[in-house]
Structures are given as structure tokens and as C-alpha cells.
Design a binder for these strands. Sequence first.
DNA 1: CGGCGATTTGATAATGGTCAAGTGCCGTGG
DNA 2: CCACGGCACTTGACCATTATCAAATCGCCG
Lengths: 246, 246
Amino acid sequence: MAPATDVLPLKIASICPFELTDEERTALGSVPMQAAELAANEDVVRERDRPSRSFVLLDGFLATYKVTSDGKQQTLSFHVVGDMPDLQSLHLGALDNTVGTLTACKLGFIAHDALRELCRAHPRLAHVLWRSSLIDGAIYREWLLNIGRREAYARMAHLFCEFTVRLDVVGRVKDRGCALPIKQAHIADAMGLSPVHVNRTMQALRGDGLLAWERGRLTVLDWAGLKRAGQFDPAYLHLSGPAYAG
Amino acid sequence: MAPATDVLPLKIASICPFELTDEERTALGSVPMQAAELAANEDVVRERDRPSRSFVLLDGFLATYKVTSDGKQQTLSFHVVGDMPDLQSLHLGALDNTVGTLTACKLGFIAHDALRELCRAHPRLAHVLWRSSLIDGAIYREWLLNIGRREAYARMAHLFCEFTVRLDVVGRVKDRGCALPIKQAHIADAMGLSPVHVNRTMQALRGDGLLAWERGRLTVLDWAGLKRAGQFDPAYLHLSGPAYAG
DNA sequence: CGGCGATTTGATAATGGTCAAGTGCCGTGG
DNA sequence: CCACGGCACTTGACCATTATCAAATCGCCG
């Protein structure tokens, strides 16, 4: 596992369309970051908060979610190592969503002032951060398509494809397998499905030999089949490296 | 109706958390813009395009959409006067969605180079544009909640609330009514519903006295009731003016 | 061994999809 | 001025996917 301090540069490189200069790399590495550890099922920031700092996920899994006024919860995105789930607070003020831990997590908080100074001094890094927030938007768009128009089987296959690619980008996939220590109920929250239906659909995916997911570890058994089932095309992730070949 | 040249400043003001200086206002007003007019049902830009310019919607209605590989279409967002539906192409390169006209439209194209120069010379305007793309993301989040967890009746009520507020912001609402010359099929595309079900749900919304929508004109008859039905809270739109009171 | 949370199973119900046909509106052309 | 055609809207009948409720099993940890 890569050390925590490598996480941010690794992620930035994956979304950066150009080579960073040594100066930029240094500036990125020397941003003051305050570490924190959280247990599972805790909220990091809540809807309506007005944070004065953002944070990088250094280890673990987070989810961004909202709740309707009658109590139904929808996960809007999952976050993997290297993500900055509330970067938006830098320019939006009040948060319109909550970010909570799905597993125990390590976070690195960065003051908004430090980020603003970084952007001022290094316009190309501002560009990359802006790009990062645009990629978040692109993922939301794909999820809207996924939830609005694909039925449960394809929808879940698509999600597992996305997990695989995003975890691969940050070096967490080995032999087509990766740690995914979250619960079926979390998948249900994200896919707009009931936990019961997620369970049944998981059995179908397993039964068709596409994947295995036991004891918090996801293994893709048939990448081509999973991509086909989920109609998955990673273009929406806007990765700058060569397309994920699986 | 406000003249086209007022549209951009009007929209910027609605999402700008601070007062623009005269210099910024002048810079904004003097960005070279190339006008174009399109008929209904034409694509402005397509998925995989790599535009060298973005555009402002000066009149009409646009939709951003994607299509699954088996041909099902999902509208990801509607655009009203003042919106810049492909601003993201400035930093993302290839588009991951198509933008098409729902009605006849007037557009104003702005070269990416001109936008980049504007951002370089006026960092606060860059801030506002970034903020604008973050608000797009916030709308996607709310739509995910809407489509994932609300049933058809509430889902559509929510959409009509959003239309009303967004059109009000750009001065297109008079006496609780606004031009909304789009088709039920467009609503279906956006809500992840079939046209038949949209039709039946429209009848329910009308029957409950919440709204009227005839000959391309939407009239809100019971704003409080419509908001309640759609569980609508405009906070996610991050408007900087006073909250929409209806 | 006991207990708790997560997963699994079964039975039933509901929301919304599909297909097919009919109605109404409006612009065009005779 | 009126018939025609096309498109959007509406209606009805039937069906599919998915939700809900409730209970049972599994697996892990103390």
C-alpha cells in the first residue's frame, strides 16, 4: 500500500492532462495537511455546514449522501483514496450534502486559505482542481443515466466496473481484486434500490460468473462480461492515462 | 424580455457571492461572443466532441443528455437562459454528454481562449465560473436524490419547482407563470419515467390544483403545495440573493 | 456458546413500463 | 373555408421490475 503522503500526488497525476513541474509537485507536497482518523459510520461534514477547510481521503471509503424530508437516503457518490469529497466548499459556501465514513478512514484536512494560496501561486494547479470538480460532475451525470435508465442488474454491474477502475487508478487493484469493505446496504443506498433487491441482484451477478465479493474483497472474474453487463465505458472518468484495459 | 446582452451579467449576478467591480463588469460585457440560432431538436455539441469554445444560452431551452448503448435516453439537466451548458469543455477536453435544443434557441459562442484570458486577467471571474460549474454539480446531486428516492408525483413536482425558481432568477417569471414550451416526453426523459406515466402524473398534479401547463405556459397555482409535494428546498441552487419566497 | 449485525429467503403488493388505440390541436393546402 | 395530416396528448389493459414485510440463516467476535 502506498504511504499516505503519496496519495494526493497519485490522484492528481491520474486526472492531470499535463506533466507537473518540479515546482508544482513541491508546492503540492508541502501544503499543510492536518491528519484525522474516523471510525465507520461517522459524518465528516454535514449538509448546511460552512467548512473553512477541505479534506483528502487518505485511507478508507466515504460516501456523499442526502436525505429527503421523509427520511429516505440516497448516496450520491462513493469516494476512494485520493478523492477530495468536499472540495466544492471552497467556492460554494454552505454544503448541500453530507459526507460520511463507510469504513474507518484516514483524512487529511487542508485549510481553504492554503488551497486558495496554492491556486493563486500555481494557476495550473487551480486548473487541475477545477478539473477534478468537473470530473465529479461527470460521474454524477453517468450515475443519473445509470439510475434513471438501467435496470438493477446492469446498474450494479456498472457500479462495480467504476469501483474497479477508480481503485486501479490509485493502485489498489491487484490481480483483478480489491478491498471493498462496505455493505450491501451501502450499494442499495447508492443505486436507488432496496437492500433486498441488491442482495438478489448480487446473487445473479455472482451466478453469472462476473464477480465475487466476499469478506470485503471484490474480485472481478470476467471483466469483459462485467463491462458488457454494465454497458461500461470509462470515458466519463476523464482519466488522462491510457484507457483502463482490465 | 431582457435583451440578449443582459443575459450573461444577469445570470452571473445570480450566482456571484460578491459585488462585481465596474472593471469586471466591463470585462464580462466585452468578451467576444459569436451569435447563432438553432431550430428545435438539433444537437449543439455531441458526446466525444472536443470544442474549442463554449456557449451561453441567450434564448430558448436546452437539455443535456446521454444515451445508453441499448438506446435509452436520459436527460441530465435542463438549461434556461443564461446557462453555459458546456463550460466544462474548457477543462475536460472531450465532452461526455450531448447538448440539444428543446425549442428554437439563440446561443452566444465564446472561444475557450477568450475565457482563459478572462480568468487569467480577472481571478474573481474565474472564481465565479468555477462556482457556476459547482452549482451544476449541486443540481446533479439533487436530481440523483430526486430520481433515486422520490416517486413520480413528488419527482415531477420538484422539477416544476426548480424550473420556476431558475426561470425567476433570470426574470422569466411573471404572475407565477412562465413560458415552458417543451413536451411531456422531455419531462419523461429527464425524470427517468415513461411518457405515459408522466402524462398520468401531470393529470394528478393538475387535479390537485398545484399547477397548470397548457400551450407551453406553466402557471403555478399553489406554490406552497407544490413545494410540499416536491419536498423542494432551493438551498441546493446556491443562489446568492434572498431565498426564493414564491 | 451466545449474540449481534449482515445476508438471505419467501410471500405479497405497488409503482411504473409497455403496447396499442383513440382524441384533440394546429398548420397546410386545396 | 374546410379537409387532411401529423404530432402531441390521453386512455385502457396488461405486465414487469422492484418494494415491503417478516422471518430465517450465516458469520464473526467476545
